[in-house]
Design a protein around this nucleic acid. Structure first.
Lengths: 249, 249
DNA sequence: ATCTTTTGTGCGATATACGCACAATCGTCA
DNA sequence: TGACGATTGTGCGTATATCGCACAAAAGAT
């Protein structure tokens, strides 16, 4: 018999699992989908979904439930509290325009890379169609390598993260990945060549000061592009973000 | 004695109120702040906040609680399900670059304008520092006027929305606002001059086809700028968004 | 038309969550 | 540094909110 934790609300946690089930991999979910995704009894999943409809976060059409734009307001709380509109986005935009390539700001969330912000361009060489909140793999991206390099002990994370083969150049073992992470730590930047997408080189540098929450900026470009220019731009971008207080709060 | 609604989960709803209390107006909230903002008993607010910490959406430092970037993943579900990264952002970026002014995509949420996406520039004449999920006033912005124009019956909404005086040019009565809304409906575009920010003219045009969920695109520029060019760009942008299926799902 | 899957709904049981009270801690101010 | 006010942690009795099940109905697929 498990001891009941009376300092949290289990029903709220179950409801959040329902909300999290809407990860965008399908345009809509049915009650049966939600119950399967969350492992909850169908009636409990239904109560969660109907609560979200009542609050305006989900809309129901026949059997299908879909997120409404109102969920964006939950994210806006973070973006606003951390001055993303005033301090982060303009810096990313300026450096991306100068580099003529998309620049993203990312953090680690569990065993994945989480995109916090990016400056996308009208026409750039590479665009993955990601948005704030998108998750990327931790082991085969330059962002992930740099984030792991910022961890005091990346071993358990590397062990827990998935190791799929995105391309034929994807490193195939966790030991190889950790060696690459150690190189990034020593060099102060991470570089991956075609491990996540064929023909695309990724660069990432740290934003956060040592000891602070791990934040990195990165960019991607076709193999053969000017890597030195990319690193220069990323370092300037990172320095400017540090100066404006990002990640210190 | 109130009849208990057994098809929803009141504890989940209370928890969501705790999450929504983190609207970004302060970098962090205390338990007392949360209880005040939500009107809940302090112990209930505490259980909600600790549940969010347990799930990774809040972090606690001393007495202060703050959102973590993980809340972005909740928004990403909507953005991904609606193909914002692939179909919306590139269109906004292209037209914003051409117009050399920021373009935003917005919907109505309750009695406010809700920003869904925007293309921000490295250097543009106007930038408010908004992000996806930001809320704007309904009555004194061109976005809000256009959204009201798309409603079958805007009267009750205009009645319920706040009517603050942002500038000395802000329309002072709901009747004046509704007259302006009727003009926008007839003209097919909304224009506001310095009602929300002094010296700034706002333009907005509808994206959604009649009958679909109200979506508009808009831009802002200093008074004296080329309004015709702005409207041309917004119309092209809206047409391209319609073509790519935005707001139809 | 049939079959399978999904959903709506009622309900008895009980576990969860409620709110209160008390003590401890923290922050502010003089 | 001490006093005071505000905030927080915690235990707990109570009740109600939620649980999950079962049955019937509806919807979708073939």
């Amino acid at each position: 018999m498990t001891t009941q934790d009376r300092s949290t609300a289990a029903t709220f946690a179950k409801g959040m699992a329902v909300l999290a089930a809407f990860d965008g991999s399908a345009p809509a979910l049915t009650l049966a989908d939600i119950a399967r995704a969350t492992g909850q009894d169908r009636a409990a999943a239904r109560r969660g979904a109907l609560t979200l409809v009542q609050l305006g976060f989900l809309t129901q059409s026949g059997r299908a439930f879909a997120l409404t734009p109102k969920v964006l307001t939950l994210a806006a709380g973070y973006l606003r509290a951390n001055h993303f509109g005033h301090r982060v986005q303009p810096v990313l935009n300026r450096h991306a325009a100068q580099l003529e390539a998309e620049i993203v700001l990312a953090a680690r969330e569990g065993t994945e890379v989480l995109l916090l912000a990016q400056s996308t361009l009208a026409s750039g060489p590479v665009s993955f169609g990601f948005t704030p909140g998108s998750r990327l793999p931790l082991l085969h991206t330059s962002l992930g390598r740099m984030l792991l390099a910022l961890e005091p002990d990346p071993g358990p994370l590397a062990e827990a993260a998935e190791l799929p083969r995105h391309t034929e150049r994807s490193l195939g073992s966790r030991a190889e990945v950790l060696a690459s992470v150690a190189e990034a730590r020593a060099a102060g930047f991470a570089e991956t060549d075609g491990e996540f997408e064929s023909g695309i080189v990724g660069y990432a540098v740290p934003v956060s000061a040592p000891g602070a929450a791990g934040l990195v900026v990165g960019t991607s470009m076709p193999r053969g592009s000017d890597g030195e220019a990319a690193l220069r731009a990323l370092r300037l971008c990172a320095a400017e973000l540090r100066q404006s207080g990002v990640g210190v709060g």
